[in-house]
Computed example of a mutant assay.
Amino acid sequence: MTETTRPRHQTPGPLEDVVLGVDTHKDIHVAAVITMTGSLLDTRSFPTTEDGYRQLLAWASAFGRLQRAGVECTGSYGAALTRYLHREGITVTEVNQPDKDTRRRRGKTDAIDAAAAAQAVLSGRATATAKTGDGPVEAIRMFKMAKVSPTKSRSQAVNQLKAVLVAADPALREALTGLSNSKLIRKCSELEAADDTAPAVAARHTLRARADRQRGEPLATRRAQVPVIT
Rank of each mutant, 00 (worst) to 15 (best):
T2V: 07
T2S: 15
E3I: 11
E3L: 09
R8D: 01
Q10I: 07
G13A: 08
L15C: 12
V19N: 01
V19S: 03
G21Y: 03
H25D: 04
D27V: 13
V30Q: 04
A32L: 10
A32V: 03
V33F: 02
T35P: 00
G38Q: 06
S45F: 04
F46M: 06
T48W: 00
T49A: 08
E50T: 11
D51K: 14
Y53S: 01
L56I: 06
L56E: 09
F63D: 15
G64N: 07
R65L: 12
R65Q: 10
Q67A: 15
A69E: 03
E72F: 01
T74A: 01
T74H: 01
G75Q: 06
A80G: 02
L81R: 00
T82R: 02
R83W: 00
Y84D: 06
L85K: 08
T93E: 00
E94G: 08
V95S: 01
Q97P: 15
Q97H: 06
R103C: 05
R104H: 12
R106H: 11
R106G: 04
G107C: 11
K108L: 14
A111G: 10
A111F: 10
I112V: 09
A114Q: 06
A117H: 00
A117V: 04
A120D: 07
A120C: 11
S123H: 01
A128E: 12
T129Q: 13
A130W: 03
D134T: 10
V137M: 12
F143I: 11
F143G: 12
F143W: 14
F143M: 10
K147V: 15
K147G: 09
V148H: 08
P150M: 08
K152I: 09
S153E: 14
Q156R: 13
Q156I: 05
A157Y: 02
V158C: 07
Q160F: 01
V164H: 02
L165R: 09
D169A: 15
D169S: 14
P170C: 05
A171L: 07
A171F: 04
E174Q: 12
A175M: 03
L176D: 05
N181V: 01
S182W: 00
R186V: 10
C188P: 02
C188H: 04
S189M: 03
L191N: 00
E192I: 08
A198H: 06
A200K: 11
H205W: 15
R210S: 01
A211S: 07
R213Q: 13
G216A: 01
E217K: 10
A220E: 15
A220T: 14
T221S: 14
T221M: 10
R222K: 13
R222D: 03
R223N: 14
Q225S: 15
Q225V: 11
P227Q: 13
V228D: 12
